[in-house]
Nucleic acid binder design. Structure first.
Lengths: 226, 226
DNA sequence: GAGGAATCGGAAAACCCCATCCACTTCGTC
DNA sequence: GACGAAGTGGATGGGGTTTTCCGATTCCTC
């Protein structure tokens, strides 16, 4: 039984040029996923990396492998966010900051937005981090409910629901009305509060024209010259 | 200047077999769009209709033409909804019922969900109905604000934002957790209220396992045997 | 610096989708 | 019932993506 090679083992046994190309592919994939989401053609990534398509496939036989490697660090940030939220002395402040933060991560990286509403049973490392974050999340909810600031009927599953909703707004508005998601999240946070403070100001609604542009934009897939 | 033929003119001048096939295509498109959204291949529609692909294209030269014909009646229902909401003696009840109703229409028909977050500048009839509904919506908002039950900083653009968010939840959960959208909408409606009644019960959150299944389901495009 | 293995990159096969063309069929009329 | 126009469906070309294959190249060791 061959012991499963750790990522480091695999990397160190590579020839130097292979390792260099591996890094190039990862870097290219990171930026392309960020801009266009996870469904971008593999050829686009290879071209941006300046390597042949075969090189990409040799290193990352499936799209999931590539996604797993690219988002390992993003998932670290995801786990960090819940850790920091738990460290906040004010549970409610920790709760709201956490939600705003990961929703902002979705908005800043279309690939990440896709990632959070998907599940890759084969990408073990990713799923492990997701599980870690989920446990922290349960704890954060408990604290916020104990403090009486989070409504008692709030469910842990309300977060994935919010992330799905947020992803919908982000992909629909795209670049045309980029901060629209903030208003959705603000509304939801007010609703999550046990005693809603209606006094807080909402982020502005998108301009009608910007929204119209976004809705037209969706009808045609942009050529996406790379 | 040739007067634009009305749909009836166009239909009546068709040979009987052509008219029959036209209806078959419309019927097939209606059900396929409903199940799979607007981006389904034209060949799938033709096959389901039992006609050749050329027949489909002759009758509906572009996808937009087909969409326009299929959703003419759905858009009527959309306009009816706002009319009925305006007739409600209780503006707030009319407001909440309206929102729930069109969100339910999205959930019941994936094609319609796509339609509401898109814009087809060339599909005149559709856009005209959308505009009619929008004017009614402005009126509904004014009434609800006047009655003091809708928060003053509510924006007309909050509806498209909600529809985008709802579309995100619906496409992400799919058949695996079909009523999840209700919880999102309930949260948002409580937030829209000027004086939130936290007493109302929320629709149940989705079961974690159902959500998990939904997230896996997304990773692979279903084969969609037709 | 020479040999051999690892690696490279582009070509190409396999697949799917859109949209058009054209030889054949059906309808409706005279 | 025969003719012409309207209509039909499959084949086809053009564009795109995924994935594999293979001759050429680069690296590392001895």
């Amino acid at each position: 039984m061959t012991p499963p090679a750790t990522p480091d083992d695999a990397r160190q046994s590579l020839r130097t040029d292979a390792e260099r190309n591996r890094e190039r592919v990862l870097s290219a994939a990171r930026s392309v996923f960020c801009e266009q989401g996870l469904e971008v053609p593999m050829t686009v990534i290879a071209r941006r990396a300046g390597v042949g398509i075969a090189t990409l496939y040799r290193r990352f036989p499936t799209r999931e492998d590539l996604i797993g490697a690219v988002f390992a660090d993003r998932m670290d940030a995801y786990v960090d966010a819940i850790t920091e939220a738990l460290a906040d002395p004010d549970p409610w402040h920790g709760f709201t900051t956490y939600i705003e933060r990961i929703c902002a991560m979705q908005a800043a990286d279309r690939g990440f937005a896709d990632l959070l509403t998907l599940t890759f049973p084969t990408a073990k490392a990713l799923e492990a981090k997701r599980t870690t974050a989920y446990h922290g999340w349960l704890e954060l909810i408990a604290h916020a409910k104990d403090s009486g600031q989070l409504r008692p009927d709030f469910s842990p599953e309300d977060l994935p629901v919010l992330l799905m909703a947020n992803a919908g707004v982000i992909t629909a508005t795209g670049d045309a009305a980029r901060d629209t998601w903030r208003r959705l999240v603000a509304y939801m946070l007010q609703s999550y509060a046990a005693n809603p403070a209606r006094s807080e100001e909402l982020p502005p609604a998108p301009a009608p024209r910007a929204l119209y542009r976004a809705m037209i934009r969706l009808t045609r897939t942009p050529p996406s010259r790379d």
